[in-house]
Computed example of a mutant assay.
Amino acid sequence: MPEQAATIDNMARGKDFFYFTTNDGINTRAYQYNFLSSKSDEIKLPVSGTASVMPVNITSNDVLILLTSWKQPFTIYNYNALTRVVKPSAWTAKFSYPGVDDIVVEETEIKSHDGTMVPLTILYNKNVKKDGSAVCYMTGYGAYGVSGTPYFSTYSLALLNKGVIVAETHVRGGSEKGESWYKAGYKTTKPNTWKDFIASGEYLINNHYTSASHLIGEGTSAGGILIGRAITERPDLFAAAISNVSCSNALRMENSPNGLNNTKEFGTVKDSVEARALYEMDAFQHVKDGTKYPAVICVGGMNDPRVIVWQPGKFAAALQNATASGKPVLLAVNYDNGHFTENKEIAYRNFANMFSFALWQAGHPDFQAKK
């Protein structure tokens, strides 16, 4: 496999072929290398999205292809490398979700603060008007080299079926464009992460997908740095923000159960250069009195060892004392689980609370208080 612009993802061996996938920053392409001919041929995937290739064993040419996309739930396909035929596997149950056929997927690149082109994925129902009146839910992460690759989300579908635009930002700090993309949002370069997020919001507003009075920003866990610094740097850009189990007080992360582990990603206060970088990414330290902040819901898990509950708690308290907008700032404490949960009843409740609060504050007509 020659070095190339696309990143090389998974690799596996079968009987007569070697299989590998590449990623262009968002979508996967799959290939099979023939041991006899020394040639590589592309495998035609049924849909564009996130895929992995799994040979059944090394004594046959039967392969499983695992595939999901922004519009397709996780699906298993059978693939025969000799005949090049891909067909749905009996391992995948039949499914039907309302509204999927009406989803439009746009994958584009937008110019960030320093001229860097940043990938942005935009999902919306085909009937949504691009006149700035739609509510938009914009999410991002940008840490640990985790990329925002395509995946099917029932949570996103619930928003899409309410006429909400869903934007997945691919900010620096992930690995969408390889190792250099990751290191461009890491420790001292971390500001690129939230500045890419801000640039994505500006693009959505300037191109009339939404407006500042209808834009929701969201960040979870390490994405708390992204959303926390986005709203403290550009509070005028957002109607509402969701700061979910969020790293909001970076300077004090070292003094928490997961603190030493986080120093490898964000830095340590024991190093003067990294300490200044931690201050820069600390949302709590950048809250200013008298600022008109958007409506914010901060969520913390009482049993969360990864992001200790006082991180979002301190951020919520600072915003409550400082904001001059008159918009609500809430702290929601989850006593039922830690960072996340496999209990769907609790998960659905948490997302319902976050979404309904944000949609209310972003002016969605279905979520306004009844008089």
Rank of each mutant, 00 (worst) to 15 (best):
S133G: 10
I110S: 10
I165L: 02
T92C: 04
K94T: 06
K44T: 15
G14N: 07
V105P: 12
V105R: 11
R234G: 01
G201H: 10
W70I: 04
E345Q: 12
A317N: 13
T22R: 14
I198F: 09
I231G: 12
I346M: 10
L278E: 11
G313F: 06
P73N: 02
Y335K: 14
V63T: 10
N353S: 09
S48M: 12
W70L: 05
W360N: 06
T139I: 06
S211M: 03
N255I: 03
G338Q: 01
H364I: 01
F315S: 04
I242K: 07
A322E: 06
S325C: 04
A222V: 00
T323G: 00
W360T: 02
Y335D: 07
G99S: 07
G49Y: 06
V287R: 10
K187M: 12
P98S: 13
N57W: 06
G132L: 03
F20Y: 15
F351Y: 13
S246N: 07
I346R: 11
R229A: 05
I65Q: 00
S37P: 03
A199Q: 12
V118M: 02
F367C: 02
A230R: 01
D16G: 12
W360V: 00
T22W: 00
V245R: 13
G290Y: 01
L67R: 06
L120V: 06
R276F: 00
T193H: 07
L159C: 08
A295Y: 01
G290L: 00
S112W: 02
L251F: 09
Y279W: 14
M302N: 10
V171C: 00
V309P: 13
Y77T: 04
A332H: 09
P235L: 09
G14W: 15
E109T: 15
F355H: 14
K195W: 12
N343D: 15
V100C: 09
Q311D: 14
A230H: 01
F74N: 02
E3H: 06
N244H: 14
N337Y: 15
K177H: 14
T28M: 08
G228P: 00
Y293Q: 09
V307P: 03
P305S: 14
F152Q: 01
N255W: 12
H170Q: 08
A134S: 15
S147V: 11
F152L: 01
A241D: 08
R276K: 14
I198G: 10
T188H: 08
I297D: 03
E106F: 05
A81K: 05
N255D: 11
N34T: 11
R229L: 12
T232Y: 05
E202C: 12
I26A: 11
Y31E: 07
A239Y: 00
L331G: 03
D41S: 15
D282C: 15
P2F: 08
A199S: 15
G140R: 05
Y182W: 13
N125A: 14
G259F: 01
K327D: 06
W181A: 15
E42Q: 14
L160A: 14
T263M: 15
F340R: 00
L67N: 02
G163I: 05
L331D: 02
C298W: 04
W194R: 09
L237H: 08
A230N: 02
A167E: 01
E3S: 15
T193I: 14
L82H: 00
I110M: 13
N255M: 14
D101H: 10
A81L: 02
S38L: 13
Q285Y: 06
V146W: 00
P365K: 11
L215I: 10
